[in-house]
Design a protein around this nucleic acid. Sequence first.
DNA 1: GCGGGCACTTGAACACTGTCAAAGTTCGCC
DNA 2: GGCGAACTTTGACAGTGTTCAAGTGCCCGC
Lengths: 215, 215
Amino acid sequence: MGKPVTTGRRAGLDRDDMVCAALALIEHEGPAALTMRRLAAALDVTTTTIYWHVGSRDELITEVIRHQSERQAGRPITGTTARERVMCAARHVWDNALDNRAITSLAHQTGTTSLLEHPLEVALGRELESAGLTGEPAARALRAILSTVGGLLVLALRNESTVPEEHRAPALWAATHGELAPATIAALTRPGDYEDLFTSTVQAVIDAHVPGPRD
Amino acid sequence: MGKPVTTGRRAGLDRDDMVCAALALIEHEGPAALTMRRLAAALDVTTTTIYWHVGSRDELITEVIRHQSERQAGRPITGTTARERVMCAARHVWDNALDNRAITSLAHQTGTTSLLEHPLEVALGRELESAGLTGEPAARALRAILSTVGGLLVLALRNESTVPEEHRAPALWAATHGELAPATIAALTRPGDYEDLFTSTVQAVIDAHVPGPRD
DNA sequence: GCGGGCACTTGAACACTGTCAAAGTTCGCC
DNA sequence: GGCGAACTTTGACAGTGTTCAAGTGCCCGC
């Protein structure tokens, strides 16, 4: 009947639909694509409608992060020794971040990483307690491990394509003559293996906090 | 004489003035204050003039970072053992970042951290070579130490005031009942001491890569 | 049946961002 | 004196988050 595209109760969308659409948008087109107008277009709605449901962009992002946070709980912890199980919990944080790069980046740049990873952090905390740590030592170990993983994630999730090639690490090292041995420069010019770096570095931090089976 | 505020060669500013003014603006009012219009106002000039001199905002930022990079070189390395000297070089990265939070944050969010810290990274590399590491092992040690420091900096430089109190880590831990021991929760609710965390965590990573005096 | 009020939606704006084309002015040099 | 290069400005464009006033549809009580 050629309904005039009018206003009023037609969309039938609620807050959850907004959050899910935002999540999909981020996953498919990256964090920068999360624009109120783009999200509105994806939902076939006006930006004002989104504001009515979610309040603001920050609230929307927080909700997206919280939603994702619930989805990434519950991977099983394996391993027999305490160190192995702690390592496994740490690797869950790492793996989940790499499996959901876009949302993790978004959480990182909005300062809501704690919110996103909290369930995984709790799991890590449990393993630390099983290993015999409580109170302050457990908190210190937890923070040390999480910040180490976080630092590695900054490297692994960095979107190289946004920064010109001549300012990226390999090019900088290639331009560094005379200060370091050629073999070292060569090694630094090659791209690093983040997986190896993760394993050895996190293991070192864990070993410094969690007593081994013979202690 | 009521000179008409005309156009033409009047400002007498060059590219370097733009960069310095941008640096000052960032240091005094934070990275978010670096806006082309604000910078133009600070220089008593139009945005187009800035574009004529520096090309684009990204180029301006790159130049600011490079400029700052040169300023933060040259702190002396102290210590007698190899591990002490490596630790000192790592601490230089840490201290410089904390002393220049605004610029470091900016570099971090534009992916130019490598550019900013490259001189300090070279110094760290030198100490690693003095400790007997070369080639791939040196590169691995360097990357491990830098990513660890980077992860700690993410924590230490995070601007807490931008994210609502109930989504910050202490509040999240305070809301976590039943999963962890009360003493652990209490320790996690208290704000952490980043200085301690830096020392112990970085030391652990260094010890894993750099042989001690008795080896 | 119908009218009031709530729930939702829209259109149009505001202030802000980076960026650019065109036009203007001033300067050094021939 | 005039020409061309080196700047500088005006004024716009497209995009961002956000809000206000005005709609429209629907349910509920009368």
